[in-house]
Simulated scan of single mutants.
Amino acid sequence: MRLMIFGAGFSGLAISRTLTGECAFAGGTTRSPERFPALQGAGLVPFIYEGGTPPEDVDAALGETTHLVMSISPDAAGDPLLQAFATGLRLAAPKLEWIGYLSTVGVYGDHDGEWIDEETPCRPVSKRSVARLAAEDGWTRLAAEAGVPLAILRLSGIYGPGRNALKSMHEGKARRLIKPGQVFNRIHVADIGGATALLARRRLGGIYNVTDDLPAPPQDVVSQAARVMGVEPPPEIDFETAELSPMARSFYGENKRVSNAKIKTVGYSFLYPDYHTGLDALYSDGSWQK
């Protein structure tokens, strides 16, 4: 396997930590040389990519790539790699055997708290989710033209080392916002790495929800973090009167319970099937602070 990860951020590094030991080569892109040590620490050869046509070193790596992971969010102009590969993916990556595209459960939009799965029609609400769905469609066309299996991983709210409710509690930033009936799914970043690795190894295509077993109100996660740390939770705050940024408030406009049954049917077993096990593990090994 020769792996290339475009956008080796929080999720990309988790994927690399899971897969690089199996790779003859593993590379990853970032926008800043300051992040090179983080990529190298996860087993990646670092490259700079800032959008548009890939530079010569990235282009050369693509020429040998067998497994491509795309983890760069679309911007106002759309997905940067879709534009770069507009003339054909096979020209840029002639040895490609599999593509993984990291998307979001936000593409489903609001379903009033009902259970949904990969067959549920998408009706995205926010501009960022509309852009994600457009990128999914673009990658689907590109992969079909190249004859390469494409796995679209729709991710729920990501947490893990250094990005979690325990750290928010410790820093005094956690809030228990109450919006009756509101639920979210979550996913530990290690399970993003594990699920992507399984799909890559088996060269599986299709759409997969990569999300936990326990959709729950957001205030319950904060309360659980407080219990794990042995401290009092912050007071409850009414969502309607809370001071929130437009982006933060927009997340509460989507209410759904997302099923992960499909990824399980192809053999994935979640390391952290709910936020209880995830937070417990983060606190036990101290990685919540990283």
Rank of each mutant, 00 (worst) to 15 (best):
204 L>Y: 09
271 L>D: 04
24 A>S: 14
163 R>V: 13
115 W>Y: 12
7 G>M: 06
114 E>M: 13
49 Y>S: 07
284 S>A: 15
37 P>L: 09
275 Y>K: 01
22 E>Q: 13
88 G>A: 14
140 T>F: 05
13 L>K: 03
31 R>Q: 15
123 R>H: 14
161 P>Q: 10
22 E>K: 09
44 L>W: 02
161 P>W: 07
190 A>V: 14
81 L>V: 15
192 I>W: 00
20 T>A: 08
271 L>V: 11
48 I>R: 06
96 L>R: 01
248 A>R: 11
263 I>K: 00
177 L>G: 02
253 G>Q: 12
77 A>G: 15
275 Y>P: 00
169 M>A: 11
110 D>P: 05
24 A>T: 13
236 E>L: 15
75 D>W: 07
179 K>C: 07
235 P>N: 13
129 S>Q: 06
171 E>Q: 12
8 A>L: 08
164 N>P: 08
136 E>C: 07
190 A>D: 12
142 L>C: 10
41 G>Y: 13
38 A>V: 07
19 L>Q: 03
258 V>N: 00
40 Q>H: 12
259 S>R: 06
148 V>Q: 08
1 M>F: 03
216 A>R: 05
173 K>D: 15
161 P>I: 10
184 F>T: 01
99 I>S: 01
9 G>I: 10
196 T>H: 05
182 Q>W: 12
107 V>N: 00
2 R>E: 08
252 Y>M: 11
26 A>T: 09
124 P>N: 08
68 L>Y: 00
29 T>C: 07
258 V>Y: 00
226 A>Y: 10
111 H>S: 10
157 G>S: 13
261 A>S: 11
255 N>A: 09
264 K>H: 07
76 A>T: 15
181 G>K: 08
53 T>D: 15
187 I>Y: 01
3 L>Y: 02
118 E>I: 06
91 L>E: 15
145 E>P: 06
224 Q>L: 11
68 L>F: 03
160 G>I: 00
78 G>K: 10
204 L>R: 01
151 A>T: 03
45 V>D: 09
281 A>M: 12
27 G>H: 01
157 G>C: 07
47 F>C: 05
136 E>T: 04
156 S>W: 02
34 E>L: 13
147 G>I: 14
118 E>P: 08
289 Q>A: 15
4 M>H: 05
186 R>H: 12
289 Q>E: 15
196 T>P: 02
83 Q>D: 15
140 T>R: 10
255 N>Q: 13
101 Y>P: 00
11 S>N: 06
203 R>P: 02
92 A>G: 12
287 S>A: 15
58 V>C: 08
22 E>P: 05
143 A>E: 01
186 R>G: 02
139 W>V: 05
64 E>P: 02
22 E>Y: 11
132 R>H: 09
9 G>Y: 04
161 P>A: 11
230 G>A: 12
250 S>I: 05
53 T>E: 15
206 G>F: 05
194 G>L: 01
173 K>I: 15
2 R>L: 09
68 L>I: 09
189 V>T: 04
228 V>W: 06
234 P>L: 13
171 E>Y: 13
140 T>W: 06
275 Y>E: 01
267 G>N: 06
28 G>D: 04
95 K>P: 04
112 D>F: 13
251 F>S: 02
168 S>L: 14
166 L>W: 03
106 G>C: 07
139 W>Q: 03
149 P>V: 11
160 G>V: 02
27 G>D: 02
80 P>C: 14
32 S>R: 10
180 P>L: 09
263 I>H: 00
